[in-house]
C-alpha cells in the first residue's frame, strides 16, 4: 500500500519486471499466525513517515487467547530439560542470523538508521539469544542453594519459572529491546505474551516467524501488535497472568502495577533510562523466577 505505485491509471509495470509479493503482518498466537479476531488492522509507518504495512490491531480477546495459549504451553515448556531450552534458544539465534538482511531492512525503516547501524543492532539481537541460550542450564546453579539447616534434613532451594509473563516490549528499541525482554523470560521456562512496540511492530512479527521455525513450541511466545494502552489493562488485571514486564508500558506503568496488585503479580518496573546495548547480566532473568525450597529428612 505504501509502495511507490501510482494509482492514477493502469499499473505501469514493465512486462519484464516481477511484482513483489507482500507480507501480511499477523499476530502470533499459540504457534499460529491469525489475524486479530476483531478484524482490525492499523497502518505502520516508517521513521520517516512512509507507510510500510498494515499490522494486526490486537483486541482484548486476542490478549485473552494469548494468555490461554501461554498457560497451555507453560507445563510443557517449563518441563523441558534446561539443555533442551538452551538448544532451542540457540536455534532461534541461528534462524535469526539467516534472516539478518530482512531484520536489518525492517529496522532501518522503523528507526531511520543507516544500514550499518541496523546490521549492528541485528547482530546484537542475535548475540542476545546466544547469551540467554547459555543461561538456560546455568542460572539454577547460580541462583539455587544447598542450605545448611540445623537438623537432619536435606534442604535445597532451586529457582523455578514464575509462569505466564506479560511483556510490554520497549517502544524505543523494536528488535534488540524486544529480544532483550523476551529471551530472559523464556530461557528459564516461563511463557510470554508480548505486546510489540506500538509504532514499530514489524520486526516483532518477523521475529515471530523466526520463533515459529526454531522448534520453540507454540504458545511459549505469543506476540500481539496493536495499542499497548488498549491491551495492557486487560493483561495487568488478568488473573492467569503471573508477572508483568513493564519495559514499554510508558506512562501507564503506575496504573498497571496497581492493577497487578489485585492478584499480586510480580512486576518489573520500567527502567527510566534503559541501555539495551549494555551487558544484560542476570537481573531481568532472575526477576521472573520463584525460589522453591524442599526439605527432606536424612535417616536410615
Amino acid at each position: 500500500m505504501a509502495e511507490p505505485v501510482a494509482h492514477d491509471g493502469p499499473a505501469p509495470v514493465p512486462s519484464s519486471a516481477r511484482l513483489a509479493v507482500r507480507k501480511t503482518y499477523k499476530l502470533y498466537l499459540g504457534g499460529a499466525f491469525p489475524r486479530s479476531e476483531s478484524g482490525r488492522s492499523y497502518p505502520v509507518a516508517s521513521h520517516q513517515g512512509d507507510h510500510l504495512a498494515n499490522a494486526a490491531l490486537a483486541s482484548r480477546k486476542d490478549a485473552r487467547d494469548a494468555v490461554a495459549a501461554a498457560r497451555k504451553a507453560f507445563g510443557g515448556w517449563s518441563g523441558r530439560t534446561a539443555y533442551n531450552r538452551g538448544q532451542i534458544l540457540y536455534r532461534v539465534a541461528e534462524m535469526m542470523e539467516g534472516r539478518s538482511a530482512q531484520f536489518a531492512a525492517e529496522l532501518a525503516d522503523a528507526e531511520g538508521i543507516g544500514a550499518a547501524a541496523a546490521e549492528a543492532a541485528v547482530a546484537a539481537a542475535v548475540d542476545r539469544w546466544v547469551y540467554h541460550a547459555g543461561w538456560a542450564d546455568k542460572y539454577a546453579q547460580v541462583l539455587g542453594a544447598s542450605n545448611p539447616v540445623s537438623g537432619p534434613y536435606y534442604n535445597h532451594s532451586a529457582p523455578e519459572p514464575t509462569g505466564v509473563v506479560a511483556v510490554f516490549a520497549p517502544q524505543d528499541s523494536p528488535l534488540l529491546g524486544l529480544v532483550s525482554v523476551i529471551a530472559p523470560v523464556i530461557a528459564t521456562g516461563n511463557t510470554a505474551v508480548v505486546v510489540a512496540a506500538e509504532r514499530a511492530p514489524l520486526p516483532a512479527v518477523t521475529l515471530a516467524e523466526v520463533l515459529a521455525t526454531s522448534d520453540l513450541p507454540g504458545g511459549v511466545v505469543n506476540i500481539l501488535t496493536g495499542r499497548t494502552a488498549e491491551l495492557a489493562p486487560h493483561l495487568a488485571s488478568h488473573a492467569d497472568v503471573n508477572a508483568l514486564d513493564l519495559a514499554g508500558a510508558g506512562d501507564d506503568a503506575v496504573d498497571l502495577e496497581r492493577a497487578a496488585a489485585t492478584t499480586l503479580k510480580r512486576v518489573l518496573r520500567p527502567d527510566p533510562a534503559p541501555d539495551w546495548t549494555a551487558d544484560p547480566g542476570i537481573a531481568r532473568l532472575a526477576h521472573f523466577l520463584e525460589t522453591k525450597t524442599v526439605w527432606h529428612p536424612i535417616g536410615m
Binding site: 542453594a145 545448611p148 539447616v149 537438623g151
Partner: peptide, 11 residues
C-alpha cells in the same frame, strides 16, 4: 516427610 520446619538458612 516432614512439615512446618524452619531454619534461618532456609529461604
Amino acid at each position: 516427610n516432614t512439615f512446618n520446619k524452619f531454619d534461618p538458612a532456609s529461604p
